[in-house]
């Protein structure tokens, strides 16, 4: 399935998602659920977090992780936005942060702003341009300390210096 990066690039997803009762493959980059940590992985290690986990309250060691996948079971369920923010700001996670589930192009701006880098597009319902256009629809933001996007925080422009 195609993967969209926040710079608008489309790539193939080379990560291997491993089910909870499956063994790890001998090689490759793997994604497991949070419950399987700690774990020795053959290649780079990623985890998937369900959206009812209180990330801020987890004793999560983010150092060894190269990818964290957050879930949107429905586009209307916005918990993973707060999880993303907590990973970036409270846990200082700096690896790749990926959104998966029921995503809509119209939400990408928000997702990028709270810290997502890549998007698992589980649908071909929308043409690719729809996703890339959406990344650029609104270039300004009123927010204080999020924004990793190249969007300009209005507050900083107003009170520069």
């Amino acid at each position: 399935m195609p993967l969209l990066e926040r710079n608008g690039q489309i790539s193939d997803d080379l990560w291997i998602a491993v089910g909870d009762d499956e063994d790890l493959p001998a090689q490759g980059d793997t994604i497991v659920s949070y419950g399987r940590l700690p774990l020795d992985a053959p290649g780079r290690l990623g985890i998937s977090l369900s959206n009812d986990l209180d990330v801020g309250g987890l004793d999560l060691q983010v150092d060894g992780l190269s990818l964290i996948v957050l879930n949107f079971p429905s586009f209307a369920d916005g918990r993973a936005y707060s999880q993303a923010r907590a990973l970036r700001q409270d846990l200082d996670y700096s690896g790749e942060l990926r959104a998966t589930g029921h995503l809509l192009p119209d939400q990408l701006g928000f997702m990028v702003e709270v810290g997502f880098d890549s998007f698992d597009l589980q649908t071909d319902r929308f043409p690719v341009e729809r996703w890339t256009e959406a990344l650029e629809a609104v270039t300004l933001t009123y927010h204080r300390h999020l924004s990793r996007t190249g969007q300009s925080p209005i507050i900083a422009a107003r009170h520069a210096g």
Binding site: F75, G78, Y81, F110, V114, T141, Y142
Partner: peptide, 13 residues
């Protein structure tokens, strides 16, 4: 008003 406009974290409450 400004802070809450299109707040990225709080638009799908």
């Amino acid at each position: 008003r400004q802070w809450s406009s299109l707040h990225p974290e709080f638009s799908f409450l």
